[in-house]
Design a binder for these strands. Structure first.
Lengths: 220, 220
DNA sequence: GTGGATATGTAACAAAAGATACGTGTCGTC
DNA sequence: GACGACACGTATCTTTTGTTACATATCCAC
């Protein structure tokens, strides 16, 4: 588990700020699959993930979800930063993927730190930058790729190093913003092409190169 | 036309920084419809739009464009900021929509200003924040709305106050990330429903309320 | 006004994605 | 081992979007 004290940005802080942070930060544990934030929530502070993974997603009126991005240990939630700096309500939903521990740094404290600590400025700007890049990449993909490509991509990105991905088709659909049936169809194709094998709640990648080809092939 | 001196952030700078900026900023005029930046370009500084409008878009392998966002006077290009702070190549294309004037603030100068001037920190963070919000909105729309809704939305957002939008169907297609034919089809529908009337290179909104309904109706 | 460039209308078809409706398989638990 | 909850497979149908292929219309320059 990552401790607050181990984070890069923390190490560079002044003694005073470090004390402020240690005393002012509120640690919050989130069980897997529980809601952390909902659309419209007021944001009390900056969210810093220590352990686990948060998933930020949208929920369309018809009920289909779509993952916007993940927040990994050491990263902060940019949408929360946004809300802090611009006094807005939270514009999406957040869920804990695994058992997750987050530190909430109260807004006033964060603003103070931002004002005086270069390393916090750095952290803020770079978190926002990364988010812009990720979102833009998503947007570009969504415009130019079919589900087939995006699914192959998802497999390659999220499988563990031994080529195994533990995830149900329903959840895959939620990530890509489509339905289980569509995922099943595509998985059927991939299976037939011997790119993967499947089990209950698990995908095993069998032909990484082939999947890469699918993920990269340009539109017709 | 907006002068550098009239911008909010500029007014709050120290005398010294103001001099630096006036001397270090490079003004660049861009004719309408010309390329300002291409994917892969190295970025020499922060881009600040004084006049006109820049359009940031992606170009899929099959040639279809899709607008990511617009940069209006007084705004900066966040992707350029990204590239500056993270030393990356530019990840998209930029085009001048109208006759546009931009100030390029060289990277080293901008970094210095960012380090010492709260108003520049503010500007940077808020530019990034706004971008994150816009991109997220786009992403959400793209997941949950059909072309029909998105087009109605585009009409409402981009028509002048008297309900006129001067834009060809080809360009509408480029913005929404689809082809002219699809736009023509939808425009045909809207026309038949008396929501709009059309001319060569111009759309006239006839029933704003009706369009709003189309734009807001939730998925089936 | 003629010609070329540009913009639009539209029909017909193909492909992708979404919706509906079941049947089947697998797991844990009682 | 019987049950229910959950996960998966699949077939069919509809809607939406993308493609192809022309015909027509408008504008500008000469």
């Amino acid at each position: 588990m990552v401790e607050l004290e181990q984070l890069d940005a923390f190490a560079k802080l002044s003694e005073e700020s470090r004390t402020l942070l240690s005393q002012g930060g509120i640690t919050r544990a989130c069980a897997p699959a529980t809601a952390v934030l909902n659309k419209g929530d007021a944001i009390s502070g900056a969210y810093l993930v220590l352990q686990g993974q948060l998933r930020v997603y949208t929920l369309a009126p018809n009920g289909t979800e779509a993952t916007l991005y993940f927040i990994n240990p050491g990263e902060t939630c940019v949408l929360a930063l946004n809300c802090l700096f611009n006094d807005l309500r939270y514009p999406a939903w957040v869920q804990a993927e695994e058992a997750t521990e987050v530190v909430v740094i109260p807004g006033p404290l964060y603003r103070t730190l931002f004002r005086f600590e270069p390393s916090i400025q750095e952290l803020t700007v770079s978190a926002l930058s990364v988010a812009v890049f990720r979102l833009m990449g998503e947007l570009e993909q969504l415009h130019s790729q079919r589900h087939r490509q995006r699914l192959a991509n998802f497999f390659l990105l999220h499988a563990s190093s031994d080529g195994v991905l533990r995830m149900t088709q329903q959840r895959l659909g939620n990530h890509l913003g489509t339905t289980r049936e569509v995922i099943a169809r595509l998985i059927g194709e991939f299976s037939a092409e011997a790119l993967i094998t499947t089990g209950r709640g698990v995908i095993r990648l069998r032909n990484i190169e082939g999947l890469r080809e699918v993920a990269c092939q340009s539109a017709p």
